[in-house]
Computed example of a mutant assay.
Amino acid sequence: MTKPLSRYAALTGYIDLARSLALDPVQLLRSVNLDPAGLDLQDRWVPTSAVVRLLELSATQSDRQDFALKLAERRRLSTLGPLSVSIREEPDARSALRLLIRYQHMYNEGLHIRMSERDGLATIMAAIDPGEPTPVRQSVELAVAVIHQLLQHLLGEHWHPVSVCFEHDRPADDSAHQRFFGAPLRFGSDFSGIVVYTSDLDAPNRLSDPLLRTYARQFLDTLTAPEEPTTTTRVRELVELLLPTGRCSIEQVARSLGVDRRTVHRHLAKSGLTFTTVLDAARVDLATRMVGGRRYSFTEISEMLAFSTPSSFSRWFHQQFGMSPREWRKRSGTEPLDRSTSDVPN
């Protein structure tokens, strides 16, 4: 079984928050094998375990046990992408939650939300499975905070839950949690999540437009038709993710997927591929984007694409595209940076 993946959208607002707390977000992202530039591609899949470790590391280095709550404050309903369109048109909060639970795999394979109702109370439980043994405190608090925000968005800012529960211990200072949730907090509970009145879930969604509901559902169905990512798809995405970090190898990809290298080879072979062909395809795609832009010098590009020397990169590029990197950059309409005018031979 491969490890669960999450979309980069899970880290919306991370860069700004980290900097506001005097952290180095680029260094932290790279320390868990995440590409800082990838945050601009919110629909890209990355290992859930990397996101989980990043949040824990950031909370530790900033000495902020409320790090996840601060991150949640930077999120909007639109962070859920196309799913947000359908959620806001559901007739009530119960329908919106059921929709979120049904399609949660679209954004985070490691997130598991369940809901049960009894005696006038509804319990909405959230759990995180990163696919490896690692602390999940911050990720769990982020998930619970997002559920709370969703309900408050639908029910109004004056709505508050009956209680908020966490399986982990109470922080040394829970004042930030008190302010965020505005409800009794129960730490050391047997589940993490939110308890609400079922009558709250029946309240009409003040944002919903019945005339748009059918169209929103049809739109969502067109986006969720594809099956879950295959191992081959995940290998391709991980190669694209790991290449710019300089740590792209079949061993690293296999570790990210929670399998051994033989399993990766076997799955690729079923699709008529090898790791080398996948790697070359990713290099071609990244090279065209990086060389055509101005952000990186040719030496930096050669390093990020895992070439031993700039001249090796230049020869490979010429074989692929029939011209040197410098010629490609000139034809794309961008002048090379001063630091890159002579770092790769023509």
Rank of each mutant, 00 (worst) to 15 (best):
W316Y: 08
T274Q: 11
G333Q: 12
S256G: 01
P310V: 12
S302M: 07
L241E: 14
Q319P: 00
V291S: 10
R234C: 08
W316C: 03
E327W: 01
T274E: 11
V235K: 06
E300S: 10
A306S: 14
V291I: 15
R217K: 12
T277I: 13
W316Q: 03
S249G: 15
P226N: 09
R236Q: 14
L220M: 14
V278W: 04
L212F: 14
D280A: 15
D285S: 15
Y215N: 09
R255G: 00
Q252F: 02
A225G: 04
K270A: 13
L305I: 04
L273N: 07
S332N: 15
E228Q: 10
H265V: 03
L286D: 04
H267V: 01
S308Q: 15
W328I: 01
G333W: 11
T224M: 08
T222M: 13
L223V: 10
I301K: 02
D280G: 06
F317C: 08
V284Q: 14
L286W: 11
T299C: 02
G293Y: 06
D343L: 07
D343I: 06
H318V: 09
R217T: 12
V264C: 06
S324K: 02
L243C: 08
A282V: 12
T222L: 14
W328M: 06
R295N: 09
R326N: 03
L268K: 04
R289D: 15
V259M: 07
P229V: 12
E227V: 13
P244D: 05
W328A: 09
S271M: 01
D260K: 05
T276C: 02
T334G: 00
T276G: 10
T309I: 05
L337Q: 12
A281I: 10
G333P: 06
T288N: 08
R326G: 00
T231W: 00
L337E: 12
T334W: 07
T263S: 10
T341H: 06
T263Y: 07
A254M: 04
E251M: 03
T214Y: 09
L220P: 07
P325G: 03
K330N: 13
D285Y: 14
S332D: 12
R213V: 11
S297I: 02
P229C: 12
T245N: 12
L241T: 13
V253W: 00
D260I: 05
S342I: 02
L241H: 06
E240V: 03
A216H: 11
Y215C: 05
F298T: 03
V291G: 07
S324H: 02
P244F: 01
G272V: 06
E300F: 03
L337Y: 02
T245W: 07
S342V: 04
T334D: 08
R255T: 04
D260M: 05
L273G: 08
Q252M: 13
R236I: 09
W328S: 01
F317T: 07
H318C: 03
D338N: 05
L223E: 11
G333M: 13
T341K: 14
R266F: 09
P229L: 13
R315H: 14
T231H: 01
L238H: 04
P244V: 07
W328Q: 01
L286G: 11
A281V: 11
S340K: 01
V239I: 07
G333Y: 10
G246I: 09
R283I: 10
R247G: 00
T277Q: 15
G272W: 02
T224Y: 10
A306D: 13
L337C: 04
V278F: 05
P229H: 12
R339G: 00
S314R: 15
